[in-house]
């Protein structure tokens, strides 16, 4: 059953379409990664989902309820961490956490104290003295102390140090183990890779790829590193081989999944000394999409200039 679903979601600011027909769907118990460069529309999508912005067209539903009309009922079961946490300078971190938990209506005080300790946050300090990372911790402690069914996290680790990032990841894992759903927007791909079951890549307001990490990798194929006794002069002509690079005595390249068998047969003819294979990292995947679409843009622009 889907906990969160958008279809054809569009948000325009004047003529500019910040979101252009976005479809995403988060199933129950799923960690859903929402990745894309800055300004791609991640935060806009999340703010529409929270009923803070009103969609221009399309549908956004959480728990089967309309995100705009039923926002208050939805929010009773949602915990949200914004990307840029602005707090009240004259309140202490502890006061803000209590306020947030109370407004969510279902906090766990034991959990709050435990998380405050784990995140190493001093709740007696006024928010004006907090660094960005500490403000983020306030929002994270409040979010993970509330007993939500859906966590919406907008670049939640952008100010945290690696140690705290790890604690954040533990929190996400714990929530997932309890069957909670999580929408995690990020541009830190290693984080998404570690945590997410599914990802959607957004660029310029459009979803350009979506699916499980496995699906996406299948699309891209495998990264191979091969060292042979004899050189392979015609490797670049073999179907399904891309991105050949020399690495010392070896060659590294990507192989499309459906051509894997043929490529291995070809390579084995040259006497394999060493062979490593790995699934592509999300980063490679992301960069490939990004570069491809920029190329399309460039070609489009050239066409315009020529015309």
């Amino acid at each position: 059953m889907s906990v969160l679903k958008t279809s054809g979601l569009t948000k325009k600011f004047g003529d500019f379409a910040a979101l252009d027909g976005v479809d995403i769907e988060v199933a129950e118990g799923e960690v859903y990664g929402f990745i894309g460069p800055n300004g791609a529309g991640k935060s806009t999508a999340i703010r529409v989902l929270l009923g803070i912005l009103k969609a221009s067209s399309g549908k956004a539903e959480i728990f089967g309820m309309d995100a705009w009309k039923e926002s208050v009922n939805i929010h009773k079961r949602v915990a949200y961490v914004p990307g840029d946490v602005n707090l009240w300078p004259n309140l202490t971190g502890g006061e803000v956490i209590d306020l947030f938990m109370k407004l969510n209506g279902n906090g766990d005080k034991g959990r709050r104290d435990e998380l405050t300790r784990r995140f190493d946050l001093d709740p007696t300090k006024k928010c004006r003295t907090y660094s960005k990372g500490n403000r983020q911790k306030v929002a994270l402690v409040a979010a993970f102390s509330s007993n939500a069914d859906l966590y919406i996290l907008d670049e939640p680790t952008s100010g945290l140090d690696p140690l705290m990032e790890r604690i954040f990841q533990e929190c996400v894992m714990e929530a997932k183990a309890q069957g909670k759903s999580i929408l995690l927007s990020s541009h830190i791909l290693s984080e998404v890779e570690k945590l997410c079951d599914k990802v959607a890549i957004i660029r310029q307001g459009k979803i350009i790829e979506t699916g499980s990490l496995q699906d996406l990798r299948h699309l891209t194929g495998t990264v191979m590193l091969v060292e042979t006794q004899r050189p392979m002069p015609l490797l670049h002509e073999v179907k399904g081989v891309r991105g050949i690079e020399e690495q010392g005595d070896a060659l590294s390249f990507q192989v499309d999944a459906e051509e894997l068998d043929r490529v291995i047969r070809y390579v084995s003819e040259f006497g394999i000394v060493r062979m490593e294979s790995a699934p592509p990292t999300l980063e490679e995947l992301f960069m490939r999409h990004y570069e491809e679409s920029s190329e399309v843009d460039r070609k489009g622009e050239e066409a315009v200039h020529r015309g």
Partner: peptide
């Protein structure tokens, strides 16, 4: 303007 309203509206506050 200071981005603090969404903390409230993002929770169960109409």
């Amino acid at each position: 303007k200071n981005g603090r309203i969404e903390h409230l509206l993002g929770r169960a506050v109409s």
